[in-house]
Design a protein around this nucleic acid. Structure first.
Length: 216
DNA sequence: GTTGCGATTGGCT
DNA sequence: GCCAATCGCAACC
């Protein structure tokens, strides 16, 4: 993997709907405290923007969602359900709230470390399949929010090794608002992708009415 | 100051 | 398939 190049900040300066599918297939690297290199290939992402009711920055700018408004290439890590951390990368121009949630990845290196953190009996398939599992295995947490992933010594490194998997598009997982917007991107045929689940709180799509607005 | 709830997961029926 | 766990945030009083 020595030919893999780090993604420059400009790579993230585009709209979340462009960056999200492009991130599928990108390498995610993190160095464990003992020096072990942890490497995975992203298999699933979701896009979020300020205009999007499901986005944390939809209502207003707050200390919590500040990284989403900041310059692209920075991490936005938040806690959900009081238990899990979720990793996003800010995209779009500085001042505009956009981001891409990294939902799942296929583990490639450092499996023993990942397994130690996730449970020795965890199947390889489940090591990084899901946003909460991924952050647990990679030890990404709240202290990393705001970190510049394109800067020096970032907690997580993103690289392009030229892989260009086919990408499918569909509705996002678990969101209660804008549940039908097809802003989730997955690697076609990958086993390391979470199954689609609709939020129990999401209103059922109104059939044949104008209520079901779905931006492209 | 209080309350309701979520971009999830894992365990149990 | 159903449901509890668990807590920071933001809406509301």
């Amino acid at each position: 993997m020595s030919g893999a190049t780090r993604l420059p900040r400009a790579w993230f300066a585009h709209h979340a709907l462009e960056v999200a599918p492009a991130l599928v297939g990108v390498l995610l690297e993190r160095t464990a405290p003992d020096g072990t290199l942890l490497r995975a290939r992203i298999t699933e992402t979701e896009a979020y923007t300020e205009d999007d009711p499901a986005c944390h920055a939809h209502r207003r700018r707050t200390p919590r969602n500040e990284p989403l408004f900041g310059p692209p290439g920075h991490a936005y890590v938040y806690r959900t359900y009081g238990i899990h951390w979720c990793l996003n990368v800010a995209t779009g121009p500085d001042g505009e709230a956009q981001g891409v949630l990294v939902r799942a990845a296929e583990p490639l290196a450092g499996l023993a470390v990942l397994r130690a953190r996730r449970g020795q009996r965890t199947p390889d398939r489940d090591l990084l399949r899901g946003p909460g599992r991924l952050t647990q295995a990679l030890e990404v947490h709240g202290e990393h929010t705001g970190a510049d992933l394109c800067g020096q010594d970032p907690p997580v490194v993103l690289r392009d090794d030229g892989a260009r998997p086919a990408v499918a598009r569909g509705p996002r997982v678990g969101v209660s608002r804008a549940a039908d917007w097809p802003w989730r991107f997955t690697a076609v045929g990958s086993r390391f992708v979470s199954p689609y689940t609709r939020s129990p709180r999401a209103p059922r799509a109104a059939e044949g009415s104008a209520a079901g607005e779905q931006p492209s």
